[in-house]
Computed example of a mutant assay.
Amino acid sequence: MRVPRRRRDAVEVNLTPLIDVVFLLLIFFMVSTTFETRQALELELPESVSGVAQVSSPVTVVVTAEGDYRLGQRALSADELASRLSDAAPQAREAGLVIEADGRAPHAAVVRVLDRAGALNIRRVRIATAEATHTEAERP
């Protein structure tokens, strides 16, 4: 006796749910990932009424309230600042140098950065400031 075989349907893999899950994961990672390159470093920038908004520079030296330096992600001493700024000098000459000095930073620490930039022939130096919230007449 011959048993008739049932015809099997062709197996299909539906990729639509898989693609939906991949897109949801992609969106999740894009939203949850931060692209901030700086660590939480709180600076009180000096205020300026006449400041002009500028495009950020790839070479930024941060002077903290204690007079410490940061170039990129790395904390530097005064001696290390000289060598690291020398390495970044070609890029700083092209795009400019931004100094983000805390309003409480010692003046000598800021002058040290300016002096080193001048010695490296970096002519486009900008000092970052915060937008003034009060005019001089309104200040207590």
Rank of each mutant, 00 (worst) to 15 (best):
M1Y: 13
P4Q: 14
R5D: 10
R7P: 03
E12S: 12
V13H: 13
V13N: 05
V13E: 04
T16E: 14
D20L: 14
F23K: 11
F23C: 08
F23Q: 10
F23G: 04
I27N: 05
F29S: 03
F29Y: 12
V31P: 00
T34K: 12
E36M: 06
A40L: 08
A40R: 13
A40N: 11
E42K: 07
L43E: 01
E44C: 01
L45I: 00
P46H: 06
S48Q: 06
S48D: 05
G51L: 09
V55L: 07
P58I: 03
T64I: 03
T64A: 04
T64G: 03
G67I: 09
Y69Q: 13
R70K: 15
G72W: 01
G72D: 06
A75M: 13
A75C: 01
A78S: 15
A78P: 11
D79E: 15
D79H: 14
E80P: 04
E80I: 10
E80A: 15
R84C: 02
S86R: 15
S86T: 15
A88G: 03
A88M: 13
A92C: 10
R93N: 08
E94S: 07
A95H: 15
G96P: 14
L97Q: 05
D102F: 13
D102P: 09
P106W: 07
P106D: 07
H107V: 13
V111S: 06
R112T: 14
D115Y: 09
G118T: 10
L120Q: 07
L120M: 11
I122M: 00
V125M: 00
V125Q: 01
I127Y: 07
A132K: 04
H134T: 04
T135P: 02
E136V: 09
E138Q: 02
E138H: 01
R139W: 01
R139A: 06
